[in-house]
Amino acid sequence: MSLSHYLVVSAALFLIGLFGALTRRNTIGILMSIELIFNAANLNLVAFNRYLHFDALHGNVITLFVMGIAAAEAVVGLALLMAIYRNLNTIYAEDFNLLKG
């Protein structure tokens, strides 16, 4: 198992997340896809730490931070979603067009 394998998996994960974020109509789906992108980044961090700086812990620690922040962000995102749903009665992203030019 080399670093490249991890990076390929990570890139795949990122692209899946991006595809999901761009194509899902349901906002919850979009949020979930974004979590995938986070995890792609996390996998990168851990992999680089393991292969490039074996003795160091920076990558692992930042990963833990990212996971914490992602959890908090999910909470905020879902809360916003609740508010939007109450006002607009929908959770499809294409209906959120108040900023239309």
């Binding site: 974020a21 761009l22 194509t23 294409e94 959120f96 067009n97 900023l99 030019g101």
Partner: peptide, 18 residues
């Protein structure tokens, strides 16, 4: 002309960013 680009679709924006 330019306002036509801004349609309020958040996923489009993300596409542009990507």
């Amino acid at each position: 002309g330019l306002r036509k680009l801004v349609r309020g679709q958040v996923q489009e924006y993300l596409l542009y960013v990507s």
